[in-house]
């Protein structure tokens, strides 16, 4: 399992706890992460290297591409926590380096 997939596994495990959901998260032999919760199985795997996306999220026999872990997190939460409504971010423009 790659270091990044290990980070993903830990993030998913902590996310279930944060969302007060009971389930399990484990890594698979092929580098994917499997989230089992509420009778759902969500598989998160690295996207092919020639893809513009970074992750593929497989849920209810549908595959969705995600451009980042932020998107993965959003997809997983939307799948497992139907009452969740994302807060519309209101972050002021962020100067990435001092100006």
């Amino acid at each position: 399992m790659s270091a990044l997939s290990e980070h993903l596994r830990e993030l998913m495990a902590q996310s279930l706890h944060a969302w007060r959901l009971t389930g399990s998260v484990r890594g698979t032999g092929d580098g994917a992460v499997l989230v089992c919760c509420q009778e759902h199985n969500i598989r998160i795997e690295p996207a092919p290297s020639d893809s513009p996306f970074r992750w593929i999220v497989v849920f209810d026999n549908r595959s969705r591409a995600a451009i980042s872990l932020v998107a993965v997190l959003r997809m997983v939460r939307a799948a497992l926590d139907p009452g969740y409504t994302a807060m519309r971010a209101r972050i002021a423009p962020f100067p990435l380096v001092p100006t």
Binding site: A3, L4, H7, L8, E10, L11, A13, Q14, S15, H17, A18, R54, S68, L69, V70, L73
Partner: peptide, 21 residues
């Protein structure tokens, strides 16, 4: 009620992904 573990895991995962990119 935001668990510390989630905040730490989030920061570490995002930084690792940005580093990989």
């Amino acid at each position: 009620g935001i668990p510390r573990g989630w905040v730490e895991a989030l920061l570490d995962a995002l930084d690792a992904e940005v580093a990989a990119v």
